Simulated scan of single mutants.
Amino acid sequence: MRIDLGEDPLALDRQVCFALSVASRSVIAIYRPLLKPYGLTHPQYLVLLALWDSAPRTVRDLSDVLRAEPATLSPLLKRLETLGYVSRGRGRGDERTLTVDLTEKGKALRAEAEKIPYRVVETLGMEVSELERLHAVLGKVIAATDRAGARS
């Protein structure tokens, strides 16, 4: 099977990586002013989303869910702890395991944070159905890169 990438396969405006990079930076920029009142960065927000989904969690579990290295998460978790949103502690059965849990302040923040997705959709000015289709396609891209990574 021959893959046809057109006349110029290196044209910048045809590169998936370029479109994903610009879209990612642009969407994350929408979150910045929404997260600022809570003292949060977007990566910290992602950690909280994972914890609001299920807490407590080990750092290893957060690493897997967020697809981030534990060393990358460490400063995020320290900052979230300083802000009073999470607590960190050693596992009861295994001292090597670091567990992260929401504090009362972190749990209470969830009610405020529920407004954020609505504001993002409003700012984008796109239909929810369009964003759901985009999310589904990105899920396929992620799965394809996972499969490609397993072959490397």
Rank of each mutant, 00 (worst) to 15 (best):
L10V: 07
L12Y: 06
V16F: 11
A19W: 13
A19H: 15
L20S: 14
L20Q: 10
S21A: 15
V22A: 12
A23P: 02
R25Y: 07
S26H: 08
S26N: 10
V27D: 07
V27A: 15
I28V: 15
I28N: 08
A29C: 01
A29Q: 11
Y31D: 02
R32H: 14
R32D: 13
L34W: 12
L34Q: 11
L34N: 07
P37D: 05
P37A: 08
Y38L: 05
G39Y: 10
G39W: 11
G39V: 01
T41E: 13
H42I: 08
P43I: 03
Q44I: 05
Y45Q: 00
Y45W: 11
L46Q: 14
L51E: 02
W52H: 03
W52Q: 07
S54E: 10
A55F: 10
L66G: 09
L66C: 10
A68T: 01
P70H: 00
A71Q: 15
T72D: 12
T72A: 12
T72G: 08
L73W: 02
S74L: 11
P75R: 08
L76V: 06
K78S: 13
R79W: 04
L80S: 09
T82G: 02
L83T: 00
V86H: 07
S87M: 11
G89I: 06
G91E: 01
G91W: 03
G93N: 10
E95G: 03
T97C: 03
L98H: 06
L98C: 04
L98S: 10
V100Y: 00
L102K: 08
T103I: 07
K105L: 10
A111F: 06
A113G: 00
E114W: 05
P117G: 06
Y118A: 14
R119V: 03
V121F: 02
E122R: 11
T123P: 01
L124T: 11
G125E: 08
G125Y: 09
G125I: 11
E127M: 09
S129A: 15
S129I: 10
E130Y: 09
L131Q: 02
E132D: 04
R133A: 04
V137D: 11
V137S: 12
L138G: 09
G139L: 05
G139I: 01
K140M: 14
V141A: 13
